[in-house]
Design a protein around this nucleic acid. Structure first.
Length: 419
DNA sequence: TCTGGGGTCCTAGGACCC
DNA sequence: TCTGGGGTCCTAGGACCC
């Protein structure tokens, strides 16, 4: 059996842990730049605030219902996630952290356990120790565990937030209940096509012919079908090093000057370099993109990206910033109002097994230099040491008007308790 | 005025090899 | 006039996830 543990309304729940006065009130968390709604408490969902809602369009509704609005506080969410995952890792030797708020546990050899009780124990302990409410779904396959989790989340009182699919009857009942567009792995495009041929529930989907599924959704769809039929096809996945690393941002205002973009690109490149060093990789190629605001029909639009092959693999901030700004020069055009840009590094090799080339002007001194920078930034706080091409005067800011304290990762932000 | 960010996998088709 | 067969690698685009 597999268990899928999912934190309920994770970001909103994190905000509530240190603000219990918000329990029972609608809470939403916004994306970077306070742009869109990316998390909602149940109360906020009930008011009718959709996922991804632009904040400015919903300001009135927020005020009407006294919705508590927060800027995204990823330092807090990341730390809370680690706490939850650490607790969960006690409950099975085999675990896959699927996302910041979800994990699969393989319950192999748990035949003598009462899984309902086990799930309730997991739920009790996570909530007691972290303050984060969770739901638990247990089933013979990963896709079915996802389905079970949905039921647990939808009917917390009836299920005690733990639901188990352990019989053919329950499997079929669950699949007939679930709409096909809510199946894990079936997105908007596929569900549209499936609806068109009369497939409306997850059960309908499992009744389709293998060939039809394969034709519509390729091998991925076929695996999913088998998993939903109760034949374990998807297994836990090993934690692997990343294959792409991106740093991209929208700007609070439009940028028109090359210098403004060059600073951003330089910062994004060195952020990618830092992430590369963390997983001990070097990249062999990078992509830079810039574009104007696609929502503005009144402005001239321009969007371009460029991929550059690097002459040698590197994770040096200096070198990546240099290559990235050179790339920017090739795609930048004056006369446009730029809204977003980013750097994506790809094609990795391991940093400690680099193949040397005969004719390359790679500067080996960057390696100890970067180690020193990383060490100092760790010691004195992020971004104390930066490149001169970066924003040394800290002009650049993200719109974060409702940022909560970093309760768990910054000593200055720790809560005080009135005795 | 204001609309996020970061990932994965698969496939088809083109370029190339012998 | 007639023009093979069997591969690999790379990339762009499309789908999906949170």
């Amino acid at each position: 059996m597999f268990a899928l543990i999912d934190c309920n309304n994770f970001y909103a729940s994190c905000e509530r842990v240190f603000r219990p006065d918000l329990n029972g009130k609608p809470v939403v968390v916004l994306s970077n730049n306070d742009g869109c709604v990316i998390a909602r408490s149940n109360e906020a969902k009930a008011i009718g605030i959709p996922m991804g809602a632009p904040a400015f369009e919903y300001e009135k509704l927020f005020q009407q219902h006294g919705v508590q609005v927060f800027s995204a506080n990823f330092a807090l969410y990341g730390d809370m996630s680690n706490r939850v995952m650490t607790i969960l890792s006690d409950y099975s030797p085999e675990m896959e952290i699927y996302s910041i708020d979800e994990c699969f546990l393989k319950l192999h050899g748990f035949n003598l356990f009462n899984l309902q009780t086990y799930g309730e124990e997991i739920r009790y302990k996570v909530t007691k120790w972290t303050g984060i409410p969770i739901s638990v779904g247990i089933a013979p396959t990963k896709a079915l565990a996802k389905v079970a989790n949905r039921i647990a989340k939808k009917y917390p009182n009836e299920t005690n937030s733990v639901y188990i699919i352990d019989s053919e009857e329950k499997r079929i009942k669950a699949l007939k209940w679930l709409r096909v567009e809510d199946v894990w792995g079936i997105g908007r495009q596929h569900s549209k096509r499936l609806n068109a041929i009369g497939i409306n529930t997850a059960f309908d989907f499992t009744q389709l012919d293998d060939e039809v599924v394969k034709k519509q959704m390729a091998i991925v769809g076929l695996r999913l079908k088998h998993d939903l039929q109760g034949v374990p096809t998807l297994d836990l996945e090993e934690r692997q090093i990343k294959k792409n690393i991106a740093t991209t941002r929208s700007f609070e205002t439009n940028y028109t000057e090359y210098e403004q973009l060059a600073e951003r690109i330089s910062t994004f490149a060195s952020s990618c370099a830092e992430k590369l060093r963390k997983q001990n990789s070097c990249c062999n190629s990078l992509m830079v993109f810039i574009h104007t605001n696609g929502h503005r029909t009144d402005l001239l639009q321009y969007s371009r990206n460029i991929v550059v092959k690097l002459p040698f693999p590197t994770n040096s901030s200096i070198e990546l910033a240099k290559f990235a700004t050179q790339a920017l020069q090739r795609i930048f055009k004056k006369g446009y109002a730029y809204k977003k840009s980013g750097v994506i590094v790809q094609d990795f090799t391991q940093a400690n097994s680099l193949q040397k080339k005969l004719f390359e002007n790679r500067d080996e001194r960057h390696i100890p230099l970067m180690q020193a920078i990383d060490k100092m930034n760790l010691l004195f706080g992020q971004q104390k040491i930066r490149l001169a091409s970066q924003d040394t005067k800290r002009v650049w800011k993200m719109k974060q008007q409702k940022l909560s304290p970093r309760y768990t990762t910054n000593l200055n932000d720790i809560i005080t308790i009135n005795v």
